[in-house]
Amino acid sequence: MEVRTIKVFTTVDNINLHTQVVDMSMTYGQQFGPTYLDGADVTKIKPHNSHEGKTFYVLPNDDTLRVEAFEYYHTTDPSFLGRYMSALNHTKKWKYPQVNGLTSIKWADNNCYLATALLTLQQIELKFNPPALQDAYYRARAGEAANFCALILAYCNKTVGELGDVRETMSYLFQHANLDSCKRVLNVVCKTCGQQQTTLKGVEAVMYMGTLSYEQFKKGVQIPCTCGKQATKYLVQQESPFVMMSAPPAQYELKHGTFTCASEYTGNYQCGHYKHITSKETLYCIDGALLTKSSEYKGPITDVFYKENSYTTTIK
């Protein structure tokens, strides 16, 4: 009895394709271990004539594949690729409408935090270190965002349907971005203890939790000093293409032309909904596939993004 075979390709990165001759009487799992086709788990399936010449994702289970996976995804987590594939199996079914010149995501599976993050990423200057993220990001900007969303979920250790947080998501993504040249110098002034300067680099240099107003941050924000008295913390120097200011959701007025974009969060910790506000020729609110415009805006804002380049204080 002759062994019926077909020729397929296996890959971990969709760049390096490895030619395989597979036995049609055995499952993919018996031949390769966990195997995925377009995100779908085909591990328990036997090869079919229609699979001839198709590319299958496999887990990096030998040295060659491990090197290829690390170079593309910059992670050695053995569960990463499987999590990416199972997320992709959902995100490829989502709709990605162009809204006001940006790629958004039609609401499904509690994905409003991903839509808000995706919209924000198209408006701030950011370059990702893992080629996987950078490639998928370019495709997302062009309207094909399924891979990018699935990668975000995998890097953030999230599953489809789980509630997510924009600030946490951005923080994970910033860790995989090139923020080497970003720098922030802060000064804390206390009447009792004097003053202390701190220099922050990388992710810490672009994120701040405690106030939404970048102007206020430049002037000074009140913080408790270690001595128990009130101290003032203010920005001395900022070198970065953008800054992200966050605070627990509270009524906040966004003035046209003073910011790049913002995240609105309605609801409580267990259950809520994100919308995205962007400042173009007027203010726009993007909620999944829905767009509304207004000249002014007041609502429960939790993150505001500002364009920056270089700032030095005039406070002496």
Results as ranks from 00 to 15, higher is better:
residue 212 L to V: 12
residue 43 T to I: 07
residue 16 N to H: 10
residue 76 T to A: 15
residue 238 Q to K: 02
residue 133 L to N: 02
residue 201 K to W: 14
residue 243 V to T: 02
residue 279 S to E: 00
residue 13 D to Y: 04
residue 79 S to L: 09
residue 287 D to A: 03
residue 96 Y to F: 14
residue 149 C to R: 03
residue 313 T to P: 07
residue 309 N to M: 08
residue 295 S to P: 10
residue 92 K to D: 05
residue 95 K to N: 09
residue 269 Y to E: 15
residue 19 T to F: 11
residue 48 H to L: 13
residue 309 N to Q: 15
residue 112 C to V: 00
residue 65 L to V: 11
residue 269 Y to K: 15
residue 36 Y to I: 06
residue 271 C to G: 12
residue 275 K to M: 12
residue 163 L to M: 10
residue 232 T to I: 13
residue 160 V to N: 09
residue 154 A to V: 00
residue 243 V to E: 02
residue 139 R to M: 11
residue 18 H to V: 08
residue 248 P to Q: 11
residue 193 C to D: 06
residue 23 D to I: 11
residue 30 Q to P: 11
residue 30 Q to C: 10
residue 80 F to A: 04
residue 123 Q to W: 01
residue 170 M to P: 04
residue 198 T to Q: 14
residue 265 Y to E: 00
residue 269 Y to D: 15
residue 175 Q to Y: 12
residue 266 T to C: 06
residue 45 I to L: 12
residue 55 T to L: 05
residue 101 G to K: 11
residue 111 N to R: 00
residue 197 Q to T: 13
residue 160 V to M: 00
residue 24 M to Q: 11
residue 93 K to M: 10
residue 275 K to A: 15
residue 260 T to I: 15
residue 250 A to I: 12
residue 43 T to M: 09
residue 5 T to S: 10
residue 2 E to V: 10
residue 193 C to W: 03
residue 97 P to T: 07
residue 82 G to V: 13
residue 301 I to P: 06
residue 94 W to N: 04
residue 309 N to E: 02
residue 265 Y to S: 01
residue 257 G to W: 00
residue 159 T to K: 14
residue 198 T to R: 11
residue 173 L to H: 03
residue 290 L to T: 12
residue 148 F to T: 00
residue 215 E to R: 05
residue 175 Q to R: 13
residue 134 Q to F: 06
residue 61 N to K: 12
residue 302 T to R: 03
residue 79 S to N: 15
residue 229 K to L: 12
residue 42 V to P: 06
residue 227 C to V: 01
residue 222 Q to F: 09
residue 177 A to I: 08
residue 21 V to S: 12
residue 73 Y to M: 05
residue 271 C to V: 11
residue 128 F to W: 09
residue 124 I to F: 02
residue 103 T to N: 05
residue 180 D to G: 10
residue 248 P to A: 07
residue 258 T to H: 10
residue 116 T to P: 08
residue 282 T to D: 11
residue 267 G to W: 15
residue 215 E to F: 04
residue 289 A to L: 05
residue 45 I to Y: 12
residue 87 A to S: 10
residue 307 K to S: 13
residue 14 N to C: 11
